[in-house]
């Protein structure tokens, strides 16, 4: 399989440096993918191909690992990722209503991205912030004790404060 990789691109250069750092350690694949996702935001085929080549592991193994874990993404995501916790504690406190309200507000289903690439709506397993249930995370910020109305309000505020693309 051939794939064009712009190796002089700064992102690939940064990834290459990370790979060199991890390469000598045993079992580096997952740690390298973590860094790759930090650099690129997601893991497109080219990046997986590059990692496979540089670490000298089969592309199938890279793809297998990427698709196995929740944390890795193969699709580009919006500027803001909304993760609604679907753990049992959040469920019992009405997480489904929050998800429904946000889905309606943004006009997208769970797992989709808005057309203006502002928001990706997603669900996650327990964050370990169950005392605040129901909980969602927008990027790295945790928002707790949500009601459907409060969740919608927060998302609206994001749109205002962080610019409408």
């Amino acid at each position: 399989m051939k794939m064009h990789i712009p190796e002089d691109n700064p992102q690939y250069k940064a990834l290459k440096r990370e790979i060199i750092r991890y390469r000598r350690k045993p079992g580096p694949l997952i740690q390298v993918l973590h860094r790759a996702q930090e650099i690129f935001g997601y893991l497109p085929p080219e990046v997986q191909f590059f990692v496979a080549k540089e670490l000298n592991v089969p592309l199938s193994s890279v793809y297998g690992v990427v698709t196995f874990y929740n944390f890795f993404r193969t699709e580009p995501v919006a500027r803001h990722i909304i993760n609604i916790c679907m753990g049992t504690a959040c469920h019992v406190k009405g997480a489904a209503n929050v998800a429904e309200a946000l889905s309606k507000e943004l006009g997208i289903k769970i797992g989709e991205t808005t057309e203006d690439k502002m928001f990706t709506l997603s669900t996650a397993r327990c964050f370990g912030a169950c005392g605040l249930a129901p909980v969602m995370m927008i990027n790295d910020e945790v928002y707790g004790k949500l009601t459907p109305e409060r969740a919608v309000e927060i998302v609206k505020k994001y749109r205002e404060e962080h610019g409408g693309a």
Binding site: G87, A89, R125, C126, G128, A129, C130
Partner: peptide, 11 residues
């Protein structure tokens, strides 16, 4: 790798 829903004792 604490992932049990409703648990955060290890954290």
């Amino acid at each position: 790798d604490e992932g049990e829903p409703g648990t955060f004792k290890d954290r």
